[in-house]
């Protein structure tokens, strides 16, 4: 029973090195309460230490990664700036690939517009086919070949 076997020494104790200081005959309510409070303190402290450590590490890691992403974006922009002095003529690309009807473009645009619930606005800049085979055939091939 709990009261029989685990009355802890409160001072100078390490986890897993409990000493018994009392038997049931001499157990006091205050001792039981103190022991339970000790377990609560150890438990809460260890859980918080572990998770605070993880919080700190992933916060720092996140900052580092975001910094890395910003740097790479800046570098890309820098490369563009170097060439900005030259006239930059983009090849003319049709908004919708040949064979895609206006109705389909309208449906795709409506689907994208439905994503704008978060306040951000999206624009459909280009609609093109990415596979030449039917979607279901492509899905079938992907499923069959994935294990290999």
């Amino acid at each position: 029973m709990w009261a029989f076997d685990t009355i802890f020494v409160m001072e100078g104790m390490k986890m897993g090195e409990f000493k018994f200081i009392s038997t049931l005959a001499s157990v006091k309510a205050s001792e039981v309460i103190l022991d339970a409070l000790f377990v609560i303190a150890i438990g809460v402290i260890v859980v918080f230490i572990a998770l605070i450590l993880l919080t700190a590490i992933f916060w720092l890691f996140g900052k580092f990664m975001q910094q890395g992403q910003k740097t790479s974006v800046f570098e890309e922009k820098g490369v563009n700036n170097d060439t900005s002095s030259e006239p930059h003529i983009l090849p003319e690309i049709p908004v919708a690939e040949a064979g895609i009807s206006e109705e389909v473009v309208a449906v795709i645009s409506a689907a994208v517009a439905a994503m704008s619930a978060d306040g951000k606005r999206y624009t459909v800049r280009r609609v093109r086919r990415v596979v030449n085979r039917p979607v279901w055939a492509a899905a079938g091939i992907a499923e069959s070949t994935r294990p290999f």
Partner: peptide
């Protein structure tokens, strides 16, 4: 990552209940 702290705080129930179960003795 601050969510970790909420995950830790919600474990309070475990230790509080340990106290309750022990006090029943």
């Amino acid at each position: 990552p601050k969510s970790f702290l909420l995950g830790a705080a919600a474990q309070l129930g475990i230790f509080a209940t340990f106290f309750g179960a022990a006090a029943l003795g």
